[in-house]
Simulated scan of single mutants.
Amino acid sequence: MMKKIAAVVAAASSIGFASLAHAEAFDTAVGEVDVSMTATLATDYIWRGQSQTDGAGAVQGSLDIAHESGLYIGAWASNVDGEDFGGSSVEFDYYTGFGSSITDDISYDLQWATYTYPGNSSIDVQEVIGSLGLYGFTVGAKYAYDPSSQLYTFIDYGFDLPYGLGLGLHYGVSDTKDPLDGVGGDEKYSDWAVSIGKTVLGLDLALMYSDTDLGDDCAYSDSDSCDSALTFSASKSF
């Protein structure tokens, strides 16, 4: 049976806690293909420890298509705060990649992603991503190369708890070398998060605490976007 690929939230480095998407499998002339969709309501959209909605709620969705070979493509969208994104109030991400398991406990994923902001294409970002899963840990790097230059390295760890709960830990480091005008500054900072999640009545519920060491050096116009945050989300996969 083909391993179902989780919905890839390309813009989010904080650990989401949606479980593997409930994909529907189709037999085609080129092999088995899984198709999944996920809808999410969240009290905030946290990206690398920073709010993208100025602390407001977020409506998000994804569509993923994965081939049994490990190839996949997908799209993801969320509202964002227009003041911080040059007037654009929505983010659309598109990505493609290849992921596979080496053993039951070791896997890898290689991906290319583009983050787009309709109405302000000057801040669209291209990024390459590589990650390795090892016995519950995930270590990886994301390199944005156009139009800005930023390296993001991260490590995640997730494990099961009693009563159907899951716990996740995340730590990441952003190192921006060539910031976008009006969006960010030359900075190197860390972010971290702790999440707990559970599936209830078909909904993937998650509660996440996140923070950074930015303090008042926030990249966005509202420094509150970099404050610690407690975020609740509910996701449904189709």
Rank of each mutant, 00 (worst) to 15 (best):
P162A: 05
L20R: 11
D81E: 08
L151Q: 12
K177M: 12
L151F: 12
V183R: 12
S221Q: 15
G172V: 01
I196W: 04
V35N: 00
Y143T: 07
I65S: 00
E91T: 05
S149Q: 14
S100Y: 14
E68V: 14
A21P: 02
E83T: 07
S225D: 14
K188E: 10
S100W: 14
I73G: 02
Y95K: 02
G130K: 07
S13K: 08
G202P: 09
V9D: 15
A25F: 01
S235F: 05
L205T: 09
A29P: 06
G31Q: 04
I106D: 01
A229N: 13
Y117D: 07
Y189D: 03
Q60T: 05
D204L: 05
Y163S: 04
M2A: 06
L41I: 07
H170L: 10
S62M: 04
K177L: 12
T176Y: 00
G119Y: 03
G99I: 00
V8W: 09
A6C: 07
W76S: 01
C226G: 05
T138Y: 04
D213Y: 08
K4D: 07
P147K: 10
Q60L: 10
I15L: 15
Q150F: 09
A6V: 07
H170R: 13
L167H: 06
L214P: 01
S174W: 06
P179H: 00
K188G: 08
S101F: 15
S19A: 15
T176H: 00
W112Y: 15
F238V: 01
S69Q: 04
W112S: 11
E68F: 08
S69Y: 04
T212F: 04
S69W: 03
T53N: 09
T116R: 09
E68Q: 15
L214N: 02
S122C: 05
I102K: 08
G158E: 08
Y45F: 15
S100T: 08
G166K: 14
A56Y: 13
K188F: 03
G97Q: 01
D27E: 12
N120A: 03
D124Q: 07
I65K: 01
V35C: 02
T212K: 07
L169P: 11
G16R: 09
H22M: 13
I129D: 11
G86Y: 11
A56M: 08
V128E: 04
D222R: 14
A42D: 06
V183S: 03
G185C: 05
Y163A: 03
G87I: 02
D27S: 12
D105E: 13
A10F: 02
D81F: 10
A11D: 14
D178M: 04
G74Y: 04
I123S: 00
L151E: 10
D104S: 15
D217S: 10
G184L: 05
D84P: 02
W47E: 15
V139I: 11
S51I: 06
G99A: 11
L151V: 15
S36K: 02
I15M: 15
I73A: 04
E24L: 12
G31I: 10
F92H: 11
G86L: 03
A229R: 14
T199N: 13
M1A: 14
Y163M: 11
A193M: 01
